Computed example of a mutant assay.
Amino acid sequence: MKKILLVEDALDTRYILSMTLQKYGYEVITAENGEQAWEILQQQTDIQLVLSDWMMPLMDGVQLCKKIRNKQDWHCYIYFILLTAKDDKDSLIQGMEAGADDFLLKPVNINELRVRLNAGNRIIQLEKTLECSKQKVQQAYDQISLDLESAAKMQQALLPKPGRLGNIEFDWIFCPYRFVAGDMFNYFELNDKYLGFYQLDVAGHGVSSALLSFTVHHRIMNSLLLNNNIPIAPEEIVAALNEEFQNSLDNYFTMIYGYINKDSGEVCLTQAGHPKPIFVSGSNAKLYGEGGFPVGMLPDLEYQSFKLQLEIGDRFFIYSDGVTECMNSENEQFSESRFMCLLEQYHDLSLDALLKKIDIELRNWRKEVPFDDDVTLLAFERMV
């Protein structure tokens, strides 16, 4: 049985309306004024219909309606019908501004009362349906958030640990735009003499980009990267990926793939649409590479590789465009030149300390605004 709170200070009117409402199938709770009604509403939180007189002692109907609307933590919507002998426009506006849903003029027409209550019940049912839908959407959102958190943990687990492989020290910065990133990187031993490394950046953001980055990561790590114990040329690896991932998920990616000779310090790599890496020797920073086409954009492309020599203490930085294109509040990019100056200014820091400094500088540049792109930096240094 539906409950209705009847608020009326006149005993005879309260009695007549109460009998009528009971005939309509309502459980009627009565109050003599707004204060009593307010107390009842605090105790009986399942009441969703209020039929209230306007003029009453202690707290009138408009004051009661305002108090109900000002309270934010009701378990359900309360439909409020205001009874009044006032039929002027100003009174109507006053009642509506207080939050009343409907009006009935006194003396109350019984048939009109029934129709207005039916309308109120339809609104209440609609509110319940919307609330149920909202809860289902929230549950779905919560589940998606949990799934994305799991995916983020999985992606983090795929990243290599900072540290040394032979005489090469690696470290990195990885800041996804959201839960998961379209950026991915890795470094690994090819054999006793060579180390492999790559970084890729899938176009776009979010789950679809992250899924493609996962796929490419696994493809690289399960590919034939050596031939007779010699690394396959990076341009051949990238060209093969380009053919394999044509129109993959209607997406493409930029990347750098290469290898390091641990004994000599020689680095050989191919750049495919990725930002130019930076070579730092002493306090001098220099850009390397010519660009190249992104992978998966066009078929039958030829790629080129280039070599450089790492001496003891030299460093190499590979990064996504989320670093240099990071925008501040004035829509100014962090830029290659600013990044290179930073690498030169703090060249005497350890690799770990330098990357922490870069991370701080980028976050200060954003001024606590979340990054608007994946920010990824892979760095390595030849040690003694």
Results as ranks from 00 to 15, higher is better:
residue 123 I to M: 07
residue 239 A to N: 04
residue 40 I to P: 08
residue 59 M to Y: 09
residue 127 E to G: 10
residue 218 H to D: 15
residue 74 W to M: 06
residue 58 L to Q: 14
residue 149 E to V: 08
residue 15 Y to D: 12
residue 35 E to L: 14
residue 344 E to D: 02
residue 301 L to P: 08
residue 203 A to D: 05
residue 222 N to G: 13
residue 145 S to M: 07
residue 173 I to V: 15
residue 90 D to G: 06
residue 88 D to E: 10
residue 108 V to D: 05
residue 304 Q to Y: 00
residue 221 M to S: 07
residue 110 I to W: 00
residue 155 Q to N: 11
residue 316 F to A: 07
residue 309 Q to M: 11
residue 207 V to P: 06
residue 166 G to V: 08
residue 319 Y to I: 13
residue 174 F to M: 01
residue 368 E to L: 10
residue 92 L to N: 02
residue 282 G to S: 07
residue 147 D to R: 00
residue 344 E to C: 03
residue 25 G to Q: 11
residue 170 F to K: 04
residue 99 G to T: 08
residue 176 P to I: 07
residue 39 E to S: 13
residue 208 S to N: 13
residue 30 T to S: 15
residue 98 A to F: 00
residue 332 E to A: 11
residue 62 V to T: 14
residue 253 F to W: 07
residue 27 E to D: 08
residue 5 L to C: 11
residue 332 E to C: 09
residue 286 K to Y: 06
residue 153 K to Q: 11
residue 129 T to H: 04
residue 77 Y to E: 15
residue 8 E to N: 03
residue 264 S to D: 06
residue 366 R to H: 03
residue 1 M to E: 12
residue 359 D to L: 09
residue 253 F to G: 15
residue 235 E to R: 11
residue 191 N to G: 10
residue 106 K to H: 07
residue 115 V to G: 01
residue 132 C to Y: 15
residue 217 H to Q: 09
residue 126 L to N: 01
residue 163 G to H: 12
residue 330 E to G: 14
residue 52 S to D: 05
residue 79 Y to W: 05
residue 8 E to F: 04
residue 239 A to Q: 04
residue 237 I to L: 09
residue 83 L to G: 12
residue 260 I to Y: 01
residue 195 L to I: 10
residue 329 S to Q: 10
residue 214 F to V: 11
residue 324 T to C: 12
residue 63 Q to W: 01
residue 363 R to P: 02
residue 384 V to R: 03
residue 284 N to C: 06
residue 346 Y to N: 13
residue 270 T to P: 07
residue 354 L to K: 11
residue 51 L to T: 01
residue 221 M to C: 04
residue 60 D to M: 05
residue 23 K to C: 05
residue 232 I to W: 03
residue 171 D to K: 04
residue 59 M to F: 05
residue 212 L to T: 14
residue 308 L to T: 06
residue 171 D to F: 06
residue 43 Q to N: 13
residue 349 L to V: 00
residue 71 K to R: 15
residue 311 E to D: 13
residue 370 P to W: 10
residue 49 L to P: 14
residue 94 Q to L: 15
residue 289 G to C: 07
residue 119 A to Q: 13
residue 107 P to I: 02
residue 307 K to V: 00
residue 228 N to W: 00
residue 328 N to C: 01
residue 76 C to Y: 10
residue 217 H to C: 06
residue 313 G to H: 04
residue 68 I to F: 14
residue 189 E to R: 13
residue 81 I to S: 08
residue 216 V to Y: 02
residue 25 G to P: 04
residue 26 Y to R: 08
residue 46 D to L: 04
residue 198 Y to A: 01
residue 200 L to E: 03
residue 162 P to S: 12
residue 97 E to K: 03
residue 346 Y to A: 06
residue 93 I to C: 03
residue 341 C to W: 00
residue 218 H to K: 06
residue 330 E to M: 11
residue 168 I to D: 04
residue 226 L to H: 03
residue 154 M to E: 13
